[in-house]
Nucleic acid binder design. Sequence first.
DNA 1: TAGATTGTTAATCGATTAACAATC
DNA 2: TAGATTGTTAATCGATTAACAATC
Lengths: 214, 214
Amino acid sequence: MANTKKRPRIDKKNLIIRRMSTYLRTLDHLQNKGVKVISSADLEKIDGVTQSLVRRDFAEFGSFGVRGVGYHVPELREQIARVLGFDRHWKVALIGAGGLGSVLMHSASFKKRNLEVVQIFDHAGVSVGTSIEGIPVHDIANIEQELDASRIDLAIIAVPPPEVQSVIDRLSQLGVRGALYFASRPVRVPENMVVLNMDITVELGVLTYQLQDF
Amino acid sequence: MANTKKRPRIDKKNLIIRRMSTYLRTLDHLQNKGVKVISSADLEKIDGVTQSLVRRDFAEFGSFGVRGVGYHVPELREQIARVLGFDRHWKVALIGAGGLGSVLMHSASFKKRNLEVVQIFDHAGVSVGTSIEGIPVHDIANIEQELDASRIDLAIIAVPPPEVQSVIDRLSQLGVRGALYFASRPVRVPENMVVLNMDITVELGVLTYQLQDF
DNA sequence: TAGATTGTTAATCGATTAACAATC
DNA sequence: TAGATTGTTAATCGATTAACAATC
């Protein structure tokens, strides 16, 4: 049987990394509340990860705490942000400026994480030619001419399901390395890309399963 | 130290269930394409889960395939839908009818999974009094009076981060069992609820991490 | 110092893989 | 029948937990 090419160890540390990203969010929250120091036991209560695992997760990347004291929130926050790559700036292309694309543009998610949307593409129609949050919307038909892959670190793909695969393939050709899409469908991931997906129907399945005999 | 209450075995089978929900999506896709039969080896190529694990996942819930042949797509689809609870109708309350709430209402995600939004709540303002997709929008201030918990199986919470916790607490009081929220913040989950979260900032952290030395 | 909490190691547990008999 | 692919078991691997010495 065909030896399906081993995906690289990308989703190797996957569980740890997802938790790290969740801790970062919690630390943002704590920092907003003015909390200065936090223990792994506190984090267990907030994030539902055992204190043992919290410490082990952090220890995977360094020694961020103070014995007998806990973790200084601003410092731990910064260390985790660094691990995840948020110590640098990321340039983003938004593909699809419909309902979801607009919601994303107007949300605080990107700037909060040092991501900057520098190009927007959509189909010729209402939005092309206008600007969203100061960024002009280009025609997706011209993406090969207009997308400057050397400036783009990742793409946020907010187009309808039937278009997602072709957008990914075109981004791959252009040399864009990363993408996140929201459509509820599987995609073939090009070798030169990391592609993640957020799909509400997948989450709904998890939720309804859990509610069945709850 | 306080013996933090063990969360029930809810996220016990979590990994399997998330994969099952992903297979279901793939089967929808295959069915749309008119594919009649699929093997675990095919599913490995599409979903990136080893054929061995695919078969094991299915076997966890029954015997859905035919030796020497594979899995009949419509039948497998139906079996997995049943496992996830999609063989029944789910009534949904949408809390928050702003940008994200509207996008969700206009998407096909809910009806695709046998979920029906039967009540919508938002803050007094533009949307209250109007209808979205034929469902009238109520004032969230009156949720205690207007939400009929006996009719509602789960809530979709699309309100801004600072309001999420209070919405969850109010739903818990009302007896709503399940919720999905999108805000980037931790929440305390009431004992009588299952609460899931989709947070783009968490996914962005996973993506930027993986892109770092890709 | 006494008390608290980290960082880390060894033990356990659970999830994944490999292999193959069953069977279409 | 021969070829294919499932369902299932045993082996392996990796992730989590428990425990405690280090140390603030």
